[in-house]
């Protein structure tokens, strides 16, 4: 008898559609759908996807409680040996959904789970709770990811001891496991040093524990005298995207004057973001960057001033390192301009 697996995928991988269909509600289908085939093939009959749950990414994000409830009920009914979600590669909301739903299945139903995504996918923040296989940052990585996920999943279903993350291909999950490397430590250290000296990439075997929390700054005392700046990762740009900010994996940010602008309109502004349905933002960019309201409040004297420039980039697929660099840079500009507080909006 082969092991039973329930697979979770989004609307895109189920061939329903892209962003314009991200709102679709969850549905249960029999057997495998789309990428499930690759898993089935790798299992060679030892395990099989008996049901697939398809859910739109926006639906999941906006109706998380409802989506969870439906998915959990279906999974419970199916009584699978394992629940697999994704892989989501670098799709942020899909990754978030995969990790979140897998975590819920694991915690509430006690069924072993596995998902896969790119390391910088926001869903990977749950890597210490859910076993996540590290994948490439685009669906082109499916061919590589499927056998790794299939092998690890089978091991888990068989109740075998799983090895270290570096051996099995899952993201380091805070549980340190010993294993034998090919080379002795001193050789690895010399190689690592040579890489570091020549500015080539290297991977530390023990990432320092992250304490990267920044303490909150003091609150603004008097709003009526404060200059407030608007920033966004929602990709709002002047119509035509003059600086060609990429719709995904942005390599730079935009700095645009809104001096004298009362309202963002369909004629003047749009979004460059490729990760969400742009219709609403293109129709009225205030829905992402509330210039109209802040201008109103400025006139009423509720705030001192709306800063003359806004800063914008596209969060979609942008590396954490880049996002960090952008913000660190424009934060200095804001500081020099005497901005007292920032409203950052994200999509």
């Amino acid at each position: 008898m082969s092991y039973k697996v329930v697979h979770y995928i989004n609307q895109f991988f189920a061939n329903i559609g892209g962003e314009e269909m991200a709102h679709v509600a969850p549905e249960l289908r029999e057997g495998f759908v789309g990428p499930g085939m690759a898993l089935n093939t790798a299992w060679k009959g030892e395990a099989e996807i008996t049901a697939t749950i398809v859910c739109g990414d926006s639906y999941f994000a906006e109706h998380e409680a409802d989506a969870k409830e439906k998915v959990l009920a279906w999974v419970k009914e199916q009584k699978p040996d394992m629940f697999i979600a994704g892989p989501a590669f670098n799709a942020g909301r899909y990754g978030y959904a995969c990790a979140t739903i897998a975590n819920a299945v694991q915690e509430e139903l006690g069924i072993p789970v596995l998902t896969g995504m790119y390391e910088e996918n926001p869903g990977a923040d749950l890597k210490n709770k859910v076993l996540i296989v590290a994948t490439a940052n685009s669906a082109a990585g499916m061919r590589k990811a499927a056998p790794v996920m299939a092998k690890l999943a089978l091991k888990i279903m068989k109740g075998e001891k799983i090895g270290a993350s570096a051996e099995e291909g899952y993201m380091p999950n805070g549980i340190r496991r010993n294993f034998f490397e090919k080379e002795v430590g001193a050789k690895r250290a010399v190689d690592m040093l040579i890489a570091k000296l020549s500015d080539k990439p290297f991977t530390t075997e023990y990432p320092m524990p992250s304490f990267d929390r920044v303490a909150p700054n003091k609150a603004v005392k008097d709003l009526s005298k404060a200059t407030i700046a608007l920033c966004t990762s929602g990709g709002i740009v002047p119509k035509g995207n003059p600086d060609h900010i990429e719709s995904s994996s942005a390599s730079h940010y935009g700095e645009y004057s809104i001096a004298g602008v009362d309202d963002l309109t369909a004629e003047t502004y749009e979004t460059a973001h490729g990760g969400y349905d742009p219709v609403y933002a293109n129709a009225d960019a205030d829905r992402v960057l509330p210039v109209d309201i802040l201008r109103e409040m400025e006139r009423e004297g509720k705030i001192g001033k709306l800063h003359d420039f806004f800063y914008t980039t596209v969060g979609n697929g942008t590396s954490v390192a880049n996002a960090k660099k952008f913000a660190a840079e424009y934060a200095q500009k804001l500081l020099q301009a005497g901005v007292h507080a920032v409203i950052m909006t994200s999509t």
Partner: peptide, 21 residues
Amino acid sequence: MVKEIERAGIPVVHMCTVTPI
């Protein structure tokens, strides 16, 4: 990104839908 603004010493509020992120 929010953290970098905070780090620069400016109070910042993050308006977003997926608050766990």
